[in-house]
Design a protein around this nucleic acid. Sequence first.
DNA 1: CTTTAAGTAAACTTGAGAGTGTACTTTTGG
DNA 2: CCAAAAGTACACTCTCAAGTTTACTTAAAG
Lengths: 202, 202
Amino acid sequence: MNRSEQKRQSILNAAKQEFIENGFAGSNMNTVCDKAEVSKRTLYRHFESKELLFEAVLTIEQQQLEALRDYRFEPKVDLRQQLISITQQEAQRLLAPHGMALARMVVMEFFRQPQMAKALSERLYHTHAVTPWLQQAIAAGAIKSVDANDAAEIYMALFNGLFLWPQILQLAQPMAATELGSKIEVVVDTFLNSYGNCESTQ
Amino acid sequence: MNRSEQKRQSILNAAKQEFIENGFAGSNMNTVCDKAEVSKRTLYRHFESKELLFEAVLTIEQQQLEALRDYRFEPKVDLRQQLISITQQEAQRLLAPHGMALARMVVMEFFRQPQMAKALSERLYHTHAVTPWLQQAIAAGAIKSVDANDAAEIYMALFNGLFLWPQILQLAQPMAATELGSKIEVVVDTFLNSYGNCESTQ
DNA sequence: CTTTAAGTAAACTTGAGAGTGTACTTTTGG
DNA sequence: CCAAAAGTACACTCTCAAGTTTACTTAAAG
């Protein structure tokens, strides 16, 4: 079953590109076929509908992202440094080649078909990957003893408010490296000013 | 020209309702005609296309909102109380009958036609109505002397992260009054912990 | 009272694009 | 080798909704 699998991959790649460029509604199945060098009938044998193809693309993307996010609290490392490092990684993920385009695509689908994209997108961009780290930090006494989910909500509000939304909505220019660095510090320091325990690191 | 104006209003009302319920793409011009009790030809005499009708609806909405937001810093009133009051007003605006639906509609349009909705939405939800207030508060020494726009960005990140996005994306249930109150305090306190001058109000 | 701008109803055109049917060829596993 | 599973080409159907045409009626200003 080798050729079949190749075709399937080819379709998924073409579809990903097409969806990123044009969103769900704007994407054209004929174009996907052409890009994938596959006949329409073949595409529809692998994926029964545009909807299912889209879900398949998102699912794969989600799994790839998931594998990269596993933050562990290190009691011996400076708290602020750890959170800066996490924030840097998250920011890089977002600013990576297709990171923002993908994020935009996913958010769009919320508006189109909430029930469909919901589970996927929650995991993609709304699972608070920092939550486990925060739980450990709270247990270790490095972060004030609040609910880790509440703290994560604040951290994500700051992060998304400075990195995700301005870029997704294209209200802001692509960020320069120095600007990125200073915004990361703002996010981390604003968060730690309210939730950090005793370490004034400003 | 009285009947004509009545028809126009009727069309705008029907369109607003339709757009709120179904978004731009999902809205049907025939349905708008029916709701407005107007013939299709009449609708198209008033608004040359769906696009122009949509813009007209948004423009009117924007003008109505604009009139309500004019926050002034009062040196004699407690800083935290002022910011809580502002935050309450903004939250109420968002949670008002059609506030969220409208916000969703506007955000959607960013994805469809950035250049069109950009100016409108910036003013609707991304003009930082708090910026003038912050400028005055900084001048009065109540807020640390940072750039008012930077501070506004943080405040809005917190506000939108807790109120706008979870609701728009329908990740959260509609909020209970007590929850609303405590979230308002979280926003304000997190902000003031980093930007307030000397008034520890926790 | 009549002209003209506005409104009505309903059938119609149009375009786009998702998905299918059909007749054919290629791959591949037993 | 040879069935059957997979792929190809492409013309076709179906649907949906934006916008138009047509033949007509109504409102109102000079």
